[in-house]
């Protein structure tokens, strides 16, 4: 079987199994269950990692395009953006920045300690 076809099939199997788990127990979205199943299957050699490697790096390189249609959806909420937009943007940026700094800095400190 050609490698890209093999990759598509194993990823779709993981995704649909993810849908099954989501349907049965709820909780996380299907794609995150799928991601975990994919990791586990690779770990236990149910999926051949060398065969999927190229297709995966192509996918990761190009997945940004998948966010574009959702992003364009911002034009739908023009009124809301006008009345609370600035506050929303500032709070989002500030809290995201705090989170980035806090997490990044803490992990880096742990890394430094280990290196010493």
């Amino acid at each position: 079987m050609p490698a890209p076809l093999y990759s598509i099939i194993v990823i779709l199997i993981c995704l649909f199994a993810g849908y099954g788990i989501n349907f049965a127990v709820g909780g996380l979205p299907p794609s995150l269950y799928g991601m975990m199943l994919f990791t586990i299957s690779l770990h236990y050699k149910l999926i051949d990692d060398k065969t999927v490697a190229n297709s995966i790096s192509w996918t990761l390189k190009n997945m940004g395009v998948c966010f574009v249609p959702a992003g364009v959806g911002i034009i739908e909420h023009y009124d809301l953006v006008r009345s609370h937009g600035i506050a929303m943007v500032i709070i989002t940026f500030v809290t995201t920045w705090l989170l980035l700094t806090f997490v990044g800095w803490t992990v880096q400190q742990q890394e430094n300690k280990k290196a010493r």
Binding site: I8, I11, L12, C14, I56, L60, M63
Partner: peptide, 11 residues
Amino acid sequence: LLQPAVVALGY
């Protein structure tokens, strides 16, 4: 297609 792409992040 974002969904299979998220699965791919498992690699």
